[in-house]
Structures are given as structure tokens and as C-alpha cells.
Design a protein around this nucleic acid. Structure first.
Lengths: 193, 193, 193, 193
DNA sequence: CATGAATGAGAATTCATTCAT
DNA sequence: CATGAATGAATTCTCATTCAT
């Protein structure tokens, strides 16, 4: 309840003031609460930041699960498309989220807690892709490679879009190219289709 | 001379203490100089940070130019390989540089100076790739797309390697896969070879 | 409450360390509070300085009002004496106040905020005097001149006393001479008495 | 030579940047010299400030002496007028000088060196006036009082003019009123004319 | 439980002084 | 003699954390 409001206020603050400019006061004011509440609920500033990262990761995970659940018995190819769509969903495109992601990456190298979370997320993306590719590409080696490349393509496209001037257009084009890349992979190596 | 030493100290400090933990004191101490020297040479902390980014961008630019100059009359394909090699060179893999890059990306969204530098760099990579792809792929649309995808692949692979546990292995594999991806593109669309 | 304590500490600090030697630390220490409190209450050092000036001006204004209120239906001449007495009252003679006034004058030429406050105060003294002189001197031109000269006499006497070695004696003598000067004026031009 | 240039630069700097904003760099830049030169010639910042005060006092002293020398055998009344004229001369009205005077007064209470210089100057003005008044007013007590009041009137008028919005007009009027005040004194007490 | 006033350590910046050239 | 690069102490301001109400 209040925790979630504070997490959302944290993302908003990072969007509005940047990671450096985000203080306990900017967060609590955006949440319409007192500054003391953050230490009370999260133990400190560090705590609410980590909680916000966890929230982003969870949104990504839940986004894919929801998509899969809504489709009935999706094919492997459909699942791959869903992975892409999830990573380029409106939520992941939103200013507050993109700015936060970038900041978190920068912090991750010096915060073991964030680093661990980041590693889990990174591996999950690749593993999700590999799972589906394996059903389409016979050679496990080739499937793993396809997953690895697709993961990089998704992250790279997302990164370049986030940092581009015309984000909306760029995100749209990125999603298209990622999907095309997946088809390219299957076309080349696929033998099980 | 002294300016370069301070820039290198800045990168070292970001590696050692993180972007947030980097202060004028950590930088000047690593450079073996007084704290006042930074304001004297760069006008302030902001100044030395921007100078450090410019330095990284310049290293990337010079790295490619040097590579091209050393080869005599490199083919378009060779040039593409050189772009990849430059982005995965030892310098770009070094801890101080990778941590700095990540931090800079995080800052770029709230610092117009850094944002501009980042935009220039991003466009240069894509434009370098497009230039070479155009000599190998007849359809300019396809060549542009190949450049765009390759740029994302390079950035994504670099990002994932930087954040991975076994960076060395990951960087090596990343370079291989990026090159393979270029070949894949030319194999599919190439008609001018 | 706390604001007033800080203002008094500011005056004490200027007395003890001079205007230049007065820092946020000397003020807060004299007030027995933390240094951060000044930014919290006054927005910064500049703020507490301006508040202190306002306080001095207010004391001067209230000093006269109180004096007038205590007397019942004072005559114009009595009011003129009260103006003099107020400007040479114990408060205005106190070290912390005299040092502060001198410093403020020095600052006023380069601080628009202080300059405005100083102008208000200067005009109030002259206008108070003019009001009473008009009831004693028929010619308004002469009354205005008397006010102007008396204001200068008061400021000049106060200034010279403040900077003199034997302040106490000098202030006493100054008050006497200022009053004598007023009588001199009325004796010369007065026609309404 | 160089010393004088630095003193003039000091006054210019106080005019341009205020007393607080005046640094060794602003002074030396205005003098077109290096920053080190000040320590070399005056031993430090404090030194050049004191030298500047001495310069102002000297200008005031010399101003009167020159005026007296130019007139041949001036009468006591003429000498009194000259004292007033000297204190309201163009030099004493100039921005760089007025700002400096005010700053010096503020400093004098916490700098024994400046305090001594200020005392000398203050006494000289009164003593100059007393010398002439004694030739016009028989009662030495009355003559001393006239000198004391005139000195205060001059300082007060100068102070109020310096701090007023329309300095030029105010200085002119001040000079007139000070002279009128002197005549008023002689008219009242004078018996030797 | 929630608030927000108060603390004080830490940061960037300024600047008088020094000293090698 | 003169310079100005380098130093580092001092200052202001920020802000995470604490705690009495």
C-alpha cells in the first residue's frame, strides 16, 4: 500500500530530478508523505532504491507471465514475440522507468545487492529466449547462441532507443527489428518448425 | 599532461568508488594533487566529468582511425570487423572505462552536456557501420537496417558483458558473435560482394 | 523563538568576530544550535543577515513607537526629543548593534536587498523629523531643511560616537548636542510655538 | 609607481565587486599585474587594504592643504568653507571612494590598524574645524561645540548622500546645508568677526 | 504509527599564500 | 624582480538519519 506508493514516487523522482537529484525529501514529497516514513518502511534511502529495482524486475517478469497466460497455448515463436513485446511495453518505455534502469546499471557495479538483482534479470531474459529457441532450433549450441544474440539485440535496441532523441519512433522501430531478427535466426537455423 | 592525469584519475575513481562515491577529493588524491587543482583546470567537478567522457569518446574514435590507418586499403568487410574490434578493445573492456560508461549513460538523461556527447557517439557508431554496409548491400534501406541492428548488437553485447560475472570470457564471446552477426547480414542481403 | 535566537547570535557574532569573520558556524555555535539550522530557517547565510538587519530596523521603529505611546499626547518638541533618544538608546549603543550597523552600510552598496532596507530606514528618520518640525516651523521648506539637517546630525553623531574611543561619554554628549541643535533650529525658524 | 597602481586597483575592485567580493585576483587583474605582486609589495591582502585607506586619508589631508595653499591668506570663515568643500569634493564623491570608506568603517571595529587610522582622520576633521571656529567664536567651549557639531554634520550628510539614490543631487544639497550650518553657528555665537 | 524539526558529517568551491621558474 | 601554477584550509550548503511529540 504505502510501500508501493513510495516506490512509485521513487521512480517519479528519478525521472524528474535524476538519480543524483533524488533525495528522501523529493521522494516523500512526491508520495505526499513525511520524510521520516522512508526510514520507517525501508530502513533508509538505499532500501527504497533497492525496492524500486525489485519492483521494475517484477514488472518485467509479471509482464511476460501475464502475456503468456492471456494467450492460450502459445507456440514457441509466439512466446519469443511476447518476450520482445514485454521488453518494449509501454511500461518499459515510460520515462520514469527508463531513467531508473540506466541509473541502476550505473550503480550495479558498486552495489552488490543491485548487482545480484541485475544478474538475475539478465539471465532470466536469456534463459526465457533459450527455452523457446530450443523448440525451434535443433542444435542446442545454435539455440543458445540465438538466445544470446537476441538478448543482446533487445538490450541494445532498448538502450539506444532510451537514449535517442525521438524515443517513441525509435522504440517502435526497435521492436520491429528485434522481431525480424528472431525470424532471421529461425530461418537460418530452424529445422524443427 | 596534468589535465590528462586528472582525467585518468577520474576514471580510476569511478572504478574504485563508483560514480556517486567519486568526489573532488577522491579524484585529486588518486592523481596525487591538491583538490583545488580541479577547479583550476576544469572549472569544477562537472568539468572534469565531461572531460573524462570526451576522453572516452575520443579514445573510441581514435581507436578505429588507428586501426584503419594500420591496415592498408581495408575492404568494407574488414572495416566492419574493425568497428567491432574497436568497441571490444582492451581499453573498452577495462574496469575503469566500463564503469564510467554505465554511469555516464545514467547521467545523460539529466545532463544536457553529457546527453549531447552521448548522442554524437551513438550516431557515429551507426554511421560508421552504415557507410561500410552500403558497399556490401545494394538496397540502402537494407544497409541502414543492418547498420542499426549491428549497432544495437554491439551495444547490447558490450552492456551484457560489462555486467556479467565472467567479463573476460563474455567479452571474447561477444566479439565473436558480433562478427558472426555481420557475416550473417551480408550473407542474407549482400549482393555487391 | 529559534529564529530570534539566531538573529541575536548573528549580532553577537558580528560583534565578536566582525562581519567578515562571521560564518554560519560562528553564528550557530553562539546560538547553541547546529549549522544546518540556518539554511533550514533562513535559506542560507544571506537570509539570516537580512533578517538581522530587519530586526535592527524594527527595534528602531518600535523604540520610537513605544516612547510615543508611553507619553500622553506628546508635543511636537517632545516627539523630536524622542526621535533623538531612540537613536541613542542603550540598544542602539550596544556593541553588537553598532558593529552590525557599520557592516550593513558597507554591504548595502553591493546588496540590493540591504540597500532597500537601508533606504527605508533613512527616509523614515527624516520623515519622522519633518512631521514634527512642520508643526513648529511655518515655512515647509525650512521645516524640511531642519529635518534634513537634524537627520544628518543624528547619523553623524552616532557614527562618530560609535567609532570613538570613549563611546559612552561620546554617545551621551552626542545626544545632548543633537537636542540642542533641534532647539537651535526652532529658535531660529520657529513661529508656530 | 606600481604600488599606487595597485592601490587604485584596490579601490576600483571594491567599487566593482564590493569589499567581500574583492580578492587578490580581482585587484591584480584590474592593475594588469600578477597576483603574486601584492604579497611582494604589501605583504598580503591586508596590507594593500590598509595602504588604500592610508591613501584615502592622505587624499583628504592633501585636498585641504592644496585648497588652503591656492587661496592667499584665507580667512577663518573661508577655511571652514574649504573643509566642507574638501569633504564633498569630486574625489570623495566618486563611487570607488565612497564604497571603500563605508567598508573601512565596518572593518575598523575589528582591525586595530584601520581603527587607528580612522581615529586619526576623525580627530583631524574636528581639530581643523575647531582651529577656525576659535577665531570666530570667543568662548572656546562654544567653539569646540560648533566644531563637534559641524564634524558630525559633515559626516552625517556625506553618509546619507552616499547611501541615497540620487547621489549627485544629494551631495550638492549636502554641501550647501553644511555651509549654511556653519554660518548659522557663527551668527549665533560669533563675536570676534 | 506518522511527522518533520534538528543534527552534523560530507561535498564543492573559493582564495590567500607560497615558491619554482 | 615578476609571474602564475599549485596548495589546502576555510566556508557554505545539502541531506540522510534520528527522535520527541
Amino acid at each position: 500500500m504505502r510501500k508501493l506508493q513510495l516506490i512509485e514516487a521513487t521512480l517519479k523522482s528519478i525521472e524528474a530530478h535524476g538519480f543524483q537529484g533524488t533525495t528522501i525529501v523529493t521522494i516523500s514529497r512526491l508520495a505526499g508523505m513525511s520524510s521520516g516514513i522512508i526510514s520507517h518502511y525501508f530502513g533508509g534511502k538505499q532500501g527504497v532504491i533497492e525496492a524500486a529495482v525489485r519492483h521494475l524486475l517484477d514488472q518485467l517478469k509479471q509482464g511476460l507471465l501475464t502475456r503468456i497466460a492471456q494467450a492460450e497455448n502459445p507456440s514457441a515463436l509466439e512466446r519469443l514475440m511476447m518476450v520482445v513485446e514485454t521488453n518494449f511495453s509501454g511500461f518499459q518505455r515510460s520515462s520514469s522507468v527508463t531513467t531508473a534502469w540506466l541509473s541502476f546499471w550505473g550503480q550495479a557495479t558498486h552495489d552488490v545487492g543491485l548487482a545480484r538483482l541485475q544478474a538475475v534479470n539478465s539471465k532470466r531474459l536469456e534463459s526465457n529466449l533459450r527455452f523457446s529457441f530450443r523448440q525451434l532450433i535443433e542444435d542446442p549450441q545454435k539455440a543458445a547462441e540465438a538466445a544470446r544474440m537476441t538478448a543482446a539485440m533487445i538490450d541494445g535496441m532498448w538502450l539506444r532507443s532510451t537514449l535517442s532523441a525521438d524515443k517513441d519512433r525509435s522504440f517502435k522501430e526497435s521492436e520491429r527489428l528485434c522481431k525480424e531478427f528472431i525470424h532471421m535466426q529461425i530461418h537460418r537455423f530452424g529445422s524443427l518448425v
